[in-house]
Design a protein around this nucleic acid. Structure first.
Lengths: 253, 253
DNA sequence: CGGTACATTGAGAAATTTCAAAGTTGGTGG
DNA sequence: CCACCAACTTTGAAATTTCTCAATGTACCG
């Protein structure tokens, strides 16, 4: 199920007095090191600046984690996009959140050994399970890390509330516009200010599962957005052609 | 806006060496003392078994808190039902959660000075703002309290995810059935096992705002539930006439 | 007793889904 | 490099769900 698995670095950790230099350690070479939780986790107060963890990759459209399984640790998406979702027995599914590179899959779930949601790779993904004990220990010792976690967790919850408003009160075009602008603004927040064109690898089926629509209707809405010169979602990219109108659609009215 | 305001108990708190006996203190006489967060907050490790706070009452259908206002503390509903909601400029609103007596309005928001949601009384309500500093201090000193908070916060988030599935993937009857059974099971959890008939003071408009439906359609669904002998929501009460069928409707399929 | 908010009903309109078929795209192996 | 396959996207038409508007009925409070 995973294409590769990088060997843990236990041996080096044990060598006394040696500052580890680990060009092969995924965290060492990760271009997203400075991002959010990982950054705070790795640059704390004297702890080693890497974590002994399980690193894996998987192809797009494959499940990373299935609801209810015992979890191996705190799940982080290092590279690629993933979604957190609930699979219903009748075949429907609801995507709860889109996880971008460098993000925790669910900050709130960091203390749980088992999740009520599943996780699927959207693109090819590199991900890791940070060991619970290690994360917990560092959170205890590192106040800034703990605070960051509180903030991320609160933000996740606020976002869930926003999506609730979207699904309960807003029309199809608005939901899809809100999804696109939400992703766009998250890219902006992390300093990767997206151009008028940027990657958007969700399939129409996945967009539908995010927004509570059918793939057919999603397709029609996307054509409508294209025809009206608002944005063009295609081939894993989105090109914004009328940012103002898109924002207006996405804005809470 | 509030019908009465009980005088704070600062004078007594300051009297040295006197164990406060406060028959008038709302927490002292609260029949829900043993419930959840309040219980853990008040019975911890040597702190006084009451909290110097602002206690208020308000009539049903009145707003307790408006999104964005500076909050006076951690909002707890002592008596009555309330809802946590988002008001949209276009007049629509989405109820994010129903708050039952003794519950924190939003565990996750406990550390925030300002909320992104509003709060409205459903019935006449007695509520209180517990001072941030006091709650925070007790959480620091009382590990069990802190743990409880983590659990409540995680539960709130899981519930938001469930509602997301409801709104995104389920039909009107199912959403309403899920709302009713969710309330029912929360009453059961707190040991107040509801009979086949129990209080359900939400108006059809409020049920509509919970479920993302219009009041008119909500009315039709409620008539349908009544006609089919499943349950009868009326006059602030619900009578369950076919629990099995109701559970089946509410169950995730 | 009267008023106001809440609930019910009907009819028509709109949004969204369903089903089914045809068109595209991208990857794989020959 | 081409042919093929599988997954994804697009389109059409009809059905269904839900909404909107508007009128009427009902309950509760002062």
């Amino acid at each position: 199920m995973f294409l590769s698995e990088i060997e843990p670095i236990a041996a080096l950790v044990k060598a006394p007095g040696i500052v580890p230099v680990l060009p092969q350690s995924p965290c060492e070479t990760c271009s997203l090191r400075s991002l959010q939780f990982c950054a705070a986790l790795l640059q704390g107060d004297g702890s080693p600046n890497f974590i002994h963890a399980t690193y894996r990759t998987t192809a797009g459209r494959r499940n990373i984690y299935r609801a209810g399984e015992p979890s191996e640790g705190v799940l982080v998406i290092c590279e690629g996009w993933a979604v957190r979702f609930v699979q219903l027995p009748n075949g429907k599914r609801q995507i709860l959140s889109v996880v971008l590179p460098g993000e925790l899959v669910s900050p709130t779930a960091i203390l749980e050994r088992q999740f009520s949601f599943s996780v699927q790779a959207v693109t090819d993904v590199r991900y890791t399970y940070l060991p619970f004990a290690e994360v917990r220990a560092r959170m205890r010792n590192n106040h800034a890390l703990f605070d960051l976690w509180l903030r991320l967790s609160a933000a996740e919850h606020r976002n869930a509330d926003k999506r609730l408003v979207d699904l309960g009160q807003r029309a199809a075009q608005e939901r899809i516009a809100a999804l696109i602008t939400h992703i766009m603004s998250r890219y902006e927040e992390r300093g990767e200010l997206p151009d008028d064109e940027f990657p958007f690898p969700l399939s129409q089926q996945q967009i539908a599962d995010c927004t509570g629509l059918t793939p057919v209707h999603t397709c029609r809405v996307l054509s409508w957005l294209r025809k009206n010169g608002i944005c063009d979602v295609r081939h894993g990219m989105v090109k914004i052609t009328d940012r103002g109108e898109l924002q207006r659609l996405a804005a809470i009215k």
